[in-house]
Amino acid sequence: MSGWQQAEFTRAAGTRMHAAVLGPADAPDVVCVHGLGCSHRYFLPLARRLAPRARVAAPDLPGFGRTPGPPEPLDVRGLSVALADWLRATRRANALLVANSGGCQIVADLAVHAPELLGPVVLNGPTVDRHARSPLHQIGRQLANSRLERATLGVVIARDYLDCGPRRWLATFRYLIEDPIERKLPHLRTPAIVARGSRDPIVPRAWAQEVTRLLPDGRLAEVPGAGHTLNYSAPHELARIVGSLLPEHSAGVPR
């Protein structure tokens, strides 16, 4: 838990869900939703920049990070139901949600079956581009993105991949590719920002613009020169974007 303030464990989704927490107890809640194979760990750079004015919680979804998962990997709906159960159990309904990559698909699915739980949303690098919905396309884009990220991200993610294991990773990868996020985005009716690094090969600008158009109340924000994982490799810039959705009394978050 190095760098985090608290390890929180909650009975939810039929397991003992872990969340890493940082920030003042009386500050507005920000909930971070991780992507494929990842965990709370790669949200720490962003949490550190938000923590002066926000209470940041980064839950590990079942089967990832420090949260035990069922023998059979959960699909997108299973993961979003788990997130919904955790939001209810921890009384974090209507918190500002910051999702990365596949986490954006989980949040979009949440909007379909539990819209009452949603607060404002930041979709950081939303996948999967419907124009490149194949394993070959996605793996190629991920490899191209790797040179745009901070070198230490590989170390963090390698540990997370070991935690979840290759079987769960591959099954979740398949579920994410098959998930039609574009059909769910119109259900996300809270204020939303699509955040994208200007050099992100996983989420091309045309796809980010399409995602933004599908949102009832969405806008696009780009970070010049950045890749896909803004929460780790461009946390200051992403914190400014997130800060624009926080309540006015949280104006101290870097903008």
Rank of each mutant, 00 (worst) to 15 (best):
L153C: 09
V121L: 10
R168M: 09
E178M: 02
A132C: 03
L123D: 02
F173R: 15
P126E: 10
L170T: 11
A108R: 03
L143G: 12
G140V: 10
G165S: 08
P120W: 15
R159D: 14
N145A: 05
A158D: 02
L176Q: 03
L143K: 14
R159W: 09
R167V: 10
Y175E: 00
Q138N: 13
E178N: 06
R174Y: 10
R141L: 06
V155I: 12
G119L: 12
I177P: 00
L110N: 04
A171P: 01
S146E: 07
G119T: 07
E178Q: 09
V155T: 12
T172V: 06
R133V: 07
A111T: 09
S134K: 11
V122M: 04
R167E: 02
E149M: 03
N124W: 11
R130G: 01
S146A: 15
D109T: 02
D109M: 06
L118P: 00
G165N: 08
Q142V: 07
R159S: 08
A114K: 02
R150T: 15
A144Q: 15
C164F: 05
Q142I: 12
L176C: 00
R174E: 14
F173K: 15
P115V: 04
H137P: 00
V122E: 02
A144P: 07
D129W: 09
T152C: 09
A108Y: 03
P120L: 10
R150V: 14
S146M: 15
A151V: 08
D109A: 08
V156D: 04
N124H: 14
L110G: 04
L143M: 11
V155Y: 10
A171W: 09
V128H: 02
G125I: 03
P120T: 13
P120I: 10
A151I: 09
N145E: 08
A132Y: 04
Q138G: 04
E178G: 05
L148H: 01
Y175G: 01
R168W: 07
L153G: 13
R130I: 00
N145R: 08
P135W: 12
D160I: 07
V112W: 01
G125N: 05
L118W: 10
R150C: 12
A144Y: 14
L123I: 11
R133P: 02
C164H: 04
I177W: 05
V128C: 02
V155M: 10
L118V: 05
I157D: 08
A132G: 11
